[in-house]
Every structure is written in structure tokens, then in C-alpha cells.
């Protein structure tokens, strides 16, 4: 029935070979190999906690089979930046209080990054729209919206300075 094979993909810039059966989701395969910054939420495509970038496009890793990502570049929230060298979105989420319990934050940051890839200067409505597949039970979204707006500004200024 189900068969297993070794797939090779890039996770946050590192090439990984994972031995996974055909019915394993990308979420399970990555969490099982230590990438627990990706959160398992509803597993129905509603909450967005498991969002990762696949070739720079945000997808729900709970609704993606690992085999479908053979040869692709996966970026999780940890791949965007770390404590020493944070991404502007990570800095803004921290400074503006956009994370409370923090469970939705990895998915929120990834979805926001996907938005800013396409649209460096989004309106409030465009931010709300891009984050409509990410649920947060703590913040009421206001500070998340502020953080994405602020990060976009920082990134535009950094871009202009280069």
C-alpha cells in the first residue's frame, strides 16, 4: 500500500534528506526532523499556524504531502532570521507586542513575509486580506497589523539605503 522513499529538499538553506512514507504531510516530516518552530494547529487549513514558504510561496504544511516538496526550498520562521540577526518582521512582532501566547506567530510571520514579497507597501486592508488564513486568539490582530506595517516600512527603508 503505502510506500516510503528518501526525498531531498532544502530547509532554511540546508539540504536535508528525509525518509518519509507517501502519506506523511510536510508538517509531520519537518516536525519529526526537529523543525518544531512550525506549529500544528487545526490541520484543516483554517488556522495557518503551520504556514511555511515553499519556493517563496506561503502554504499550509498540514495540507501538503512531503513527497510533493521534493527538490523544493522550504523556509520556516527560523529561516527568516535568528536572535542575533532577526528579520524586520521578527523585530517588529517583538517590539510592538504582536505576540502573546506566540502559537500563531510563526505562521503569521511567514504569511506576512509572503505578502511583502509581492507587495512591499501594503494597505491595512491588503494586510488583513493576506493574513485572513491565520487565526490568533490573543491579540485581536491590531498589534499584528501594526507590526506588519512597521516591518514593511523598515524593509522599504533598508531597501532604499542599499
Amino acid at each position: 500500500m503505502s510506500n516510503s522513499k528518501t526525498i531531498t529538499l532544502s530547509v532554511n538553506g540546508r539540504i536535508r534528506s528525509l525518509d518519509v512514507p507517501s502519506h506523511r504531510t510536510l508538517l509531520e516530516a519537518l516536525r519529526d526532523s526537529g523543525h518544531v518552530d512550525i506549529k500544528r494547529g487545526c490541520e484543516k487549513g483554517d488556522c495557518g499556524a503551520c504556514a511555511v514558504l515553499v519556493d517563496e510561496v506561503a502554504i499550509d504544511s498540514c495540507l501538503t504531502l512531503a513527497w510533493m516538496c521534493e527538490g523544493k526550498e522550504i523556509t520556516t520562521v527560523s529561516g527568516l532570521g535568528d536572535v542575533e540577526n532577526p528579520h524586520p518582521l521578527q523585530t517588529s512582532f517583538k517590539q510592538l507586542g504582536a505576540a502573546q501566547c506566540g502559537f500563531c506567530t510563526p505562521g503569521m510571520v511567514v504569511a506576512a513575509r509572503s505578502l511583502l514579497n509581492d507587495n512591499p507597501d501594503p494597505s491595512d486592508d491588503e494586510i488583513r486580506y493576506a493574513l485572513s488564513g491565520n487565526l490568533c486568539r490573543c491579540t485581536g490582530y491590531t498589534k499584528i497589523l501594526d507590526a506588519v506595517k512597521h516591518a514593511a516600512l523598515v524593509m522599504r527603508e533598508e531597501g532604499a539605503g542599499q
Binding site: 487549513g45 483554517d46 495557518g48 504556514a51 510561496v57 506561503a58 502554504i59 499550509d60 495540507l63 501538503t64 504569511a111 509572503s114 505578502l115 486580506y129 493576506a130 493574513l131 485572513s132 488564513g133 491565520n134
Partner: peptide, 12 residues
């Protein structure tokens, strides 16, 4: 399409 699910589902 503009009111369809959320960003990640629209992308797939």
C-alpha cells in the same frame, strides 16, 4: 477568488 479561504489555501 477575492473572498476565498485564506492566503495559504488560495496559493494551493
Amino acid at each position: 477568488a477575492g473572498q476565498f479561504a485564506g492566503q495559504m489555501v488560495r496559493n494551493t
